[in-house]
Write a protein that binds this DNA or RNA. Sequence first.
DNA 1: TCGGTCGATTTTATCGTTCAAGCCGCCGTT
DNA 2: AACGGCGGCTTGAACGATAAAATCGACCGA
Lengths: 348, 348
Amino acid sequence: MALDSGRGRPAAGGSATISDVAQAAGVSRQTVSNVLNAPHRVRPVTRERVEQVIAELGYHPNRVARSLRASSPGMVGYRIQSVSTESVAAINDRFLHALVEAGQAGNHHVLLFTAADTDAESDHCTALWRTGAVSGVVLYDIEPHDQRPERLIAAGVPFAAFGRTAAGTDRYSWVDIDNAAGTEAAVDHLVAAGHRRIGFLGWPEGTSVGDARARGWLAAMDRHGLLAQSHRLDVRGPDAMSTGTCLMAELLDRPEPPSAVVAATDTLAVGALQALRDRGLRAGEDVAVVGFDDTAAASALGLSSVRQPIEEVGRLIMAELLRATSGPSDLDPLQRLLEPELVLRASG
Amino acid sequence: MALDSGRGRPAAGGSATISDVAQAAGVSRQTVSNVLNAPHRVRPVTRERVEQVIAELGYHPNRVARSLRASSPGMVGYRIQSVSTESVAAINDRFLHALVEAGQAGNHHVLLFTAADTDAESDHCTALWRTGAVSGVVLYDIEPHDQRPERLIAAGVPFAAFGRTAAGTDRYSWVDIDNAAGTEAAVDHLVAAGHRRIGFLGWPEGTSVGDARARGWLAAMDRHGLLAQSHRLDVRGPDAMSTGTCLMAELLDRPEPPSAVVAATDTLAVGALQALRDRGLRAGEDVAVVGFDDTAAASALGLSSVRQPIEEVGRLIMAELLRATSGPSDLDPLQRLLEPELVLRASG
DNA sequence: TCGGTCGATTTTATCGTTCAAGCCGCCGTT
DNA sequence: AACGGCGGCTTGAACGATAAAATCGACCGA
């Protein structure tokens, strides 16, 4: 029988190492390793003996050592944003959950960090990658002129993004929601229900998501030939419930108020519902309201809303990142636009 | 000048290693290491030369290798829960954010994982610890008869918990909110405002958080001698907005309805507000409502609410966990009860 | 009987870092 | 001049794992 060449500590304080198992089973470290990673190379008799010792000692291979050898940490970085006190209906937690779940399926974990702004985020991502702490990072909520993609490309950090910039999108992997199609679907539905004057509650111009949702409303209204009588029903403000209430009130005060509104987020839509209630109007009967994101608030309030397949986005992004980092070489980056889906409830 | 005994690859594909720096600066690896970790041991001239080479090569010490050597991964595990579709106002994201931020301050990162239930969570925590992936874990939302603490103690996994079990709390570190004091404060405030019939909207019995909040309401009502006329104003249901609406409606239908209610969560309180509106009653004028958690929804709706210092909880838990894992030995576990604070708004 | 192939296992080297011990030269002391 | 001490640096070993190469015996065909 062979002797183990490693040190002979008998599994004292910490858990057992591969050398402990090797020694106890009377084989070499490598054979133990093979039992775990390439069982077909080991004779069944030996394998069973080793497996039994592994069970007895409660041996679990050390991830850190494995990562060092494999020069792949099995980690993906993600910046957790500070919680907004404005938005009453966010979905980034759904995204994160999907990311973690998909990562786990591919034997990767998600490592969280915080950063004050996107510049600090880029720096942190770069540092994490340079120190070998992560094999790649995930970016959330990319803006049209976001600096993050180009910075990370310059630093050589592998990444995949939810959302995309205005330019250079062919150079990196992204998954995005067809936000315009979402608001278009909302308008189409409202038109089919007989509405003609359909307002839009949106964010101020300049965000990728907000602009796309506004564009969808505009395109659909135009397609139905309703722009002439509705082009002034497009109102904007920051993403807060109070904004939704104010903007809706403003629209209702018009000489020709809308009979329906499409909101860029559930937060704005919930605010709009409030404005209706303040005037004794009933959502869905007097005025139809459609939100965006299908949050818990929407389902609780019976608010129709456009649902993003955000879990699917998380899965795709993680799968793509793992493919890119563990894969053999540089294939074409994934660029995928997913369709949202209108969920109908009492409000419209 | 000495030669470096390590291999001589000139920093090809990946980033530079400590050996590359040593070779380029004409010193040994250990000297480079000392420049970074114990600068006082290195002569200023040498130090500057090495520092310059470090900057030129863009060298960043590899965390994985460092972790292996130090046998401390610099990671803390945390289970991210699946997102509830019921609760419209959760605060676990605030907790997680605080945790990550506090960890970063102590050079630790948070590693996320998912698990179907608390048993799976315990197993995953144990596996993460046995494989050396984390130096400890954080538990969220401990129930009275939660199995997690004792399981982790049995497995030897270091942890710190938000919340505590009914028994054995002296054996582990926890931070909890004095939930009873929160609802007591709410009742005290309402009594001072002249209310006598004060209802309670809570969860069914059996949860640590829910029971404590109910207990606080009961204790304060008793202390003010109001139980006789209000003991039937305690209604319970699952934590959903619709529940809040139903329960509130039920209370309002009583022959002697409450003039104020304390809710166990903002979700229930928001539902209650809805019930008031359905009957044309005004919150804060006709009926006072106080929620719990001070979520974004509360501030958006002008709902008075009991605010948990959850960021403080996150900071304390992370600090304690780092102390316990990196500390020299087993000091007494931290056991800390924090006071919540009543935030007054228009609803009461 | 000998070279060759193959399967099972061991040996060696390596991932990148840091701890512990060793070496060398300089200074001050007696 | 011999010695101890110390600052500054290098050397060797170790952390725990795995890829690649080497070893060894058995089996096979010529």
